[in-house]
Computed example of a mutant assay.
Amino acid sequence: MMKNVSKIFSGNTSNHIFLLNSNQELFGCGRNQYSQLGLGESRKEETKIQKLTQIQNIPKGKIIDIQCGNFHSIILIENQNLKRKLYSCGDYQSNGLGKEDENTYEFTEIKLPLIEKDDYIIDFSVGSFHTLILTSNSKLIGFGNNYYGQLGIGDIRMQEIPTQIELPKLRFNEDISNYHISCEDLIKLFRRKEFCDISFKTKNGEIIEAHKLILKYRLNQNQNENQNEIEKLQEIISKKSIKESNQIFEMIYSNNSKINPKLYSEIKEIINSNEKIEETMKRIYLNENEKDFIIERKEKQYKFPKLILIMRSELYRGMFLSVTEDNSNKVTDYSELSNKSFQIFEYWIYSNQIKDEIQITKEIINELEIGIDYFQLNQTNPNLFDLLINKFNNQN
């Protein structure tokens, strides 16, 4: 019954599990005393499900994540319009549906009026009897058992309805975001005011601020033409509504044509082809005006754009988005890397590639393997270490 298992979901204190296959079919087993498996009302009396059983009546959409509490389960689903919604089943005191003394027998949508139209769910976390939700506008929302004050709302009252949690003052609006660069994270990151340096005007005169560096990275910039791609983009935006314009920028930032296929077909000629990315990044690589962060190595300074470092490295992502104030603009010292290894690292940061003429040795691989861990580059795609191994094998 279970073929091509793609994900397994459980929890530290839960006694039930879920398995998801590549066809987006969901199966579960284990404790079901509070209907935490979401099997439906007809099976609410079954307290133990001893074999994997398919969960029916799952809301339509792509299952992004499932988490298991002790007496409840939460599922995050993304629909065809890329809107994310949370659904819950199980103990009424834990599932955030606000239904007094009524357990939820199948996955039911959690109403979240605290999330506005321009906001969306980035992440959520389920405890034994409570749940926390993080949104793109840095709202933290919680519900469920609060006996120990685990919701952080200033009291120990049960919260059956999702409640916003007051956050301490942060350095940036998105400081508590998930540091893995997903499509949503990129869109959120590139809207940050401190990275904005170019403005676009819509047909109704609204202003959208954007980031020249990222547009150069995403667009097919040809400096020899009379009109570059940023100017072409301005012409398109000037004929669009604010909603359509925001969607265009979301497509450019995230490189995701599914956001609006019709708009994408209109602008795809100015979007970089894979062959042009290296050329575009070389221009950024060589342009001193685009660089605002210094790495010192063996008394020599190397400048990098912060946004590029954020995109490539977990280390710098955490540093630049840290909740602690840090006015430093440089990091020292990476002298443990040889000149050739640092050259590989530097070029890869920009192009996500390794130069063809570079000869890879076992010593370079061993050296950069340590560097990859230090710079926390393991979340990138493609992974630098995988590229090194493949190139080494091809050369030998």
Rank of each mutant, 00 (worst) to 15 (best):
F9W: 07
F9D: 05
L19Q: 03
N21P: 02
G28D: 02
G28H: 02
N32Y: 04
N32A: 03
Y34E: 11
L37R: 06
K48R: 07
L52N: 06
I55M: 02
P59K: 01
G61K: 06
I64S: 05
D65K: 15
I66R: 03
C68M: 07
N70H: 07
N70T: 11
I77E: 08
K85F: 15
S88A: 15
K111A: 13
Y120E: 15
I121P: 07
T135R: 07
K139Y: 07
G142V: 11
D155C: 04
M158T: 05
P162K: 03
I165G: 05
R171H: 04
R171Q: 13
N173D: 10
Y179Q: 14
E184W: 02
F190R: 03
E194T: 11
G205N: 13
E209T: 03
L219T: 03
Q223W: 10
N228A: 05
I236E: 09
F249L: 03
F249P: 04
N255P: 01
I259K: 02
S265W: 04
I271M: 12
N274C: 08
E275G: 00
I277L: 12
N289S: 15
E299Y: 12
E299P: 00
T332D: 12
E336Y: 14
S341G: 14
F342H: 08
Q343V: 02
Y347K: 10
I349H: 13
I349Y: 09
K355P: 06
F375A: 04
Q376T: 10
Q379K: 13
Q379Y: 12
D386E: 15
L388P: 01
L388N: 06
I389G: 04
N390I: 13
N394E: 14
